[in-house]
Design a protein around this nucleic acid. Structure first.
Lengths: 202, 202
DNA sequence: CAATATTTATTGAACGGACAGTTAATAATT
DNA sequence: AATTATTAACTGTCCGTTCAATAAATATTG
C-alpha cells in the first residue's frame, strides 16, 4: 500500500482501544476478535498485536483506560458547591442518575465483571477501582457526618451500602424495570439511601 | 466401539447439562466448547448436537434448568413455620445467606447475566425468573404487612428493594468484601432491609 | 541542506488449532 | 423390523499468533 500516512503510537493506541470498545458493544465478548477491530478502523490485524502483543494485554489496556476515566472524577466532583446539603444532594443525584449508570455501556460493563471471575488481573483492576470509589465516598461521608448533613455511625459501611445500592440498581434496570424509566426506581433507591444515611441506619 | 451401553434421552440430557455446567465453572464462557463437554463425560460431540441441535439450544436448556430449580422454592418455602415473625426471619436469613448466594456458581451466574445483554431469549428467561421471585416476595410481604410483622406502604417496591440489595450484595462479595467473610456484610444488608421494611422506609 | 542510517509504523503471508455444525454409518434397544 | 443412541469422518471458518518484508518518519552525519 503505497503513499500511506503513518500515525505514531500516541495516536494509534487510543484509536485501537476506542475501536475495541465499539466492537465490544456491537459484537460482545465472544464476537470480538482482533481482526474485526482492525477492520473497523482499516488497519492490519498485525498492527494491533504490534502495539499490544496479545489479546490479554489489549483487554487489560481497555479496562485500565475505563478505570482511569472513572477515577478522573469528572462526574462526581462537586467541590465548587459551597452549601453542604446541596453538595450532598448533588453527589447522591449523580450516583443514582441514568447518566452515571451509562458511564460505560452496561453490556461491556457486565462483560468485564464476568471476566473478573476468570482473570485475576481483571479482578484486581476492578477491585482497585471500587475500593477507590468506596474510599472516595467514605471521605465524603466523614465530612458530611461531621457537618450534620447525614447521621451515620460507620462511614465505611455507609459507603459500602451506597455502592451496593448503586450496583443493585444496575441489575434492577436490566431485569426488573420493564417499561418504567430508569429514573423511577433510581429515585426510590436514592430515597432509601437518604433514609438510611440520615437516621443512623448504618 | 463394541459392547457399549446406551442410555436414553431421559438420562443423557441431564447428564450433558450437568457436564456443561461443570465445564462452564472450570473453563468459563469462552473456554467451554461442545467437544470439551463431550470429553468430560466420554461421549462423542455429535451426541450433544443430536440432543440439542446447536449451541444456543444447549445454553437455553441449561438456563431453563437453573431457572426451574430456582422456582422449585426448595430453599425459600417456610410455610411450615407458624409464627409470623419467625417465618419472616427465616425468609430474610435465607435471602441474605451464603448458601442462597451460592445456589448457582457466581461465575456462571454472572456469565449468564452477561449473555442476557447479547441474547434476547436469555434475557427473557432471567427476567421471568426475577419477576417470579419479586411476585413471590410481594405475596409474602402483603401477608407480613397485614399481620404487622413489617410496615410498608408499597409491597412491590419493598420486594424490588430486597432484590436490589440481594444482587448488590453479590457484587459486594466479589469486589469489595476483601478478606471479610460473606456473612459480615450480608448481616449489614439484612439489618438495613429490616430497618426499611419495619419503619415504612418504602 | 542533502544523503544516509536508524527507528518506527504497517502490511503480508502463513501456521496450527479449535470450533460449530453436517452427513452418513454403525451399534444397541425396542 | 423399526427406532433410537452413538460414533466416525469431514468441512469450512475464524482465531490468535509468528515472522518476515516493506514503507514512512526520524535521526545522524558529512
Amino acid at each position: 500500500m503505497a503513499g500511506r500516512k503513518n500515525r505514531n503510537a500516541e495516536l494509534r493506541i487510543p484509536e485501537i482501544l476506542e475501536a475495541y470498545y465499539r466492537v465490544l458493544i456491537d459484537e460482545g465478548l465472544e464476537g470480538t476478535s482482533i481482526s474485526k477491530i482492525a477492520k473497523s478502523i482499516d488497519i492490519h490485524p498485525s498492527l494491533i498485536l504490534h502495539y499490544f502483543q496479545n489479546k490479554d494485554n489489549l483487554r487489560a489496556a481497555l479496562i485500565e483506560l475505563i478505570v482511569s476515566k472513572f477515577k478522573s472524577r469528572h462526574l462526581i466532583n462537586f467541590d465548587h458547591i459551597e452549601d453542604d446539603q446541596e453538595r450532598f444532594d448533588a453527589l447522591m443525584d449523580m450516583i443514582f442518575s441514568y447518566e452515571w449508570s451509562r458511564t460505560v455501556d452496561p453490556g461491556v460493563h457486565f462483560g468485564f465483571y464476568y471476566q473478573s471471575f476468570r482473570d485475576e488481573h481483571v479482578h484486581k483492576l476492578f477491585t482497585d477501582m471500587f475500593v477507590w470509589f468506596r474510599d472516595f465516598l467514605h471521605d465524603q461521608f466523614v465530612d458530611f457526618n461531621r457537618k450534620g448533613v447525614i447521621q451515620v455511625s460507620d462511614e465505611v459501611k455507609a459507603a459500602d451500602f451506597v455502592l451496593t445500592m448503586m450496583e443493585g440498581l444496575e441489575f434492577h434496570a436490566h431485569f426488573l424495570a420493564g417499561d418504567n424509566p430508569f429514573e423511577d426506581f433510581a429515585q426510590s433507591c436514592k430515597k432509601t439511601a437518604y433514609t438510611i444515611l440520615k437516621n443512623r441506619g448504618v
